[in-house]
Simulated scan of single mutants.
Amino acid sequence: MTVARDHLLRSLAPLPDGAWAMIDEEARTRLAPALAARRVVDFAGPLGWTHSATNLGRTEALAAADGLEARRRRVLPLVEARVPFTVSRQELFDADRGAADRDLGDLARAAHRMAVAENQAIFHGWEEAGVPGIVPASPHPPVPRVPDFEDYPQRVALAVTTLLENGVGGPYALVLGSAAYAKVIETAEHGGYPMWDHVRKILEDGPVVWAPGVHGGVVLSLRGGDFLFESGQDLSVGYDRHEGDAVHLYLEQSFSFRIATPEAAIGLVSASDADADRPA
């Protein structure tokens, strides 16, 4: 998480520097485990708040006359995402005095909501923002699974085999929504062998990643160059306004996402709607 202090208006907030340091650290702590997409796709940036579009390296012809030929460069605009939250001035002042039981629950909620939004955009798409999703873009039929999680290694193996047959090498990552992730962790196969270890071997020692917001699961290659996340302003905390004890802040970022090789991933279908994470 980076801090761009110009347009975020942090200097106008009635908070001391120590409070800002505490808020930034809390945001980092809350965001880091949940930003799953960044762990398995290529990340470029941050390129700054003024960076507005990603070069696609392509053009489109324009109508012209009198022997003139013209083409327009194609770009992908970045999308800005913001989640507001509120902190108590008194709570921050008490923490500055040494209180260990600080209450920053609304910041935790905002961080989770932002992480869920980013994960859902990358893996399932955000049509209005022009963000393609890894699962919808994949040409492979999703791998179904039955409710019994003991068969999950076979499903992961089928997904990996499909990628290999299409010339997509590993290692691979298995990205799972919260419900599926918990099932994989707690399930032991016949004989007591932990499913986690079996799945990791199938993935060629790739990671099993918790991704709140993901529906079911996704197997994708980690070879690089297939999925491209470009960060303008990385996740930062800004100031909106204050009213008495309540200080209204927000988490904000700008980014674009491109898919170079859609066949480098395959979805694993949930057995029921219960496996689909929902925004907080």
Rank of each mutant, 00 (worst) to 15 (best):
V3N: 08
V3A: 13
D17L: 10
I23Q: 12
D24R: 05
D24Q: 12
A27P: 03
T29W: 00
R30L: 05
A32D: 10
R38E: 07
D42H: 12
W49H: 15
S52N: 06
A53S: 15
T54A: 06
L62Q: 08
A64H: 04
A70F: 03
R74L: 14
L76A: 13
V83S: 04
P84D: 12
P84E: 14
T86C: 00
R89T: 11
E91Q: 09
R97D: 15
A100L: 06
L104K: 10
G105C: 00
G105Q: 11
L107A: 03
A108G: 10
A111G: 02
H112G: 09
V116Q: 08
H124K: 08
G130I: 02
P132L: 03
G133N: 10
A137Q: 12
P141L: 04
R145E: 10
D148Q: 15
E150L: 14
P153S: 10
E165I: 00
N166I: 06
Y172H: 12
A173H: 12
A182Q: 13
V184Y: 07
V184H: 02
T187P: 02
A188K: 15
H190E: 15
G191E: 13
P194H: 04
W196V: 02
V199I: 13
I202C: 05
P207W: 03
V208R: 02
V209L: 07
A211R: 03
G217T: 08
V219I: 13
L222W: 12
E230M: 00
L235E: 11
S236M: 10
V237A: 11
H242L: 00
D245K: 05
Q253G: 07
S254Q: 11
F257D: 02
R258P: 00
T261L: 06
E263T: 08
E263D: 12
A265L: 14
S272W: 12
A276V: 13
P279M: 08
